[in-house]
């Protein structure tokens, strides 16, 4: 599976994602600068974490207008895989590729710690190696991970089983129904606040993030 890691000005998890795809998963991987518009040959695009455009205006609000985002939309429309992690998730909601929005954490703190993530749906391309209800130890690192959407959208998310991950136990950021990750209706675009790329090698304290990559590689 060929991976592309999008780099916005202010992305700071791009190298971690690249490292995991290239050196841990041993897949062909390349960086894609936000000014590029050619995603041909790729099977999966990762929008990494960070602070694209300094989080100015709103998280992800400016990145959404990067030239590469039009290409990402077409890429997603063609059924290929898109993963937005943390700031990447924020960019995907701003771009309308995923419903809802991520706003300020309930307690205002920037939270950076390992949490238990519950797999709410294992019938997705990103979780097929997991069991539904299984928990994964994966870190979060965000100030704006408080997912919200209106009642009609939440109903849709539930009806289509688009809620992929929830926080097990205590809700760290106040997100609606403890939502930590969702996918689009078609199931090929995933957005999640936790960082699987930071939990993909034993030296980092957890390899549970590998469950997501492994699911994807089964495709």
């Amino acid at each position: 599976m060929k991976f592309g890691v999008i780099v916005f000005p202010g992305s700071n998890c791009d190298q971690d994602c690249y490292h995991v795809a290239k050196n841990v998963l041993k897949q062909p991987t390349k960086y894609v600068w936000h000014q590029e518009t050619d995603l041909s040959g790729l099977d999966c695009v990762i929008l990494p974490g960070g602070f694209s455009y300094g989080d100015y205006l709103r998280t992800g609000a400016i990145a959404r207008f990067s030239p590469v985002m039009e290409a990402v939309k077409k890429f997603a429309d063609s059924g290929k895989y898109v993963i937005g992690i943390c700031n990447g998730f924020q960019v995907l909601t701003e771009a309308g590729l995923l419903p809802g929005a991520l706003h300020r954490n309930r307690d205002l703190h920037f939270i950076c710690r390992h949490i238990e993530l519950k797999v709410a749906n294992n019938k997705t391309a990103f979780t097929s190696a997991c069991k539904t209800g299984q928990t994964l130890n994966i870190p979060i690192a965000h100030g704006e991970g408080n997912y919200t959407c209106d009642a009609a959208t939440l109903k849709e998310l539930k009806k289509n089983k688009q809620i992929v991950f929830t926080y097990a136990g205590e809700n760290p950021n106040g997100s609606l129904q403890s939502i930590a990750g969702i996918c689009n209706k078609r199931g090929n675009v995933l957005g999640m606040m936790p960082h699987p790329e930071r939990a993909s090698e034993a030296a980092l304290g957890s390899v549970d993030g590998m469950m997501i990559w492994r699911s994807l590689l089964k495709r």
Binding site: H103, R104, N105, R106, D107, L108, N146, T148, G174
Partner: peptide, 14 residues
């Protein structure tokens, strides 16, 4: 400004 009904943690803290 935040929509009515949307939690505003900044407002609450202030």
């Amino acid at each position: 400004y935040p929509k009515k009904g949307v939690l505003d943690p900044q407002g609450k803290t202030v």
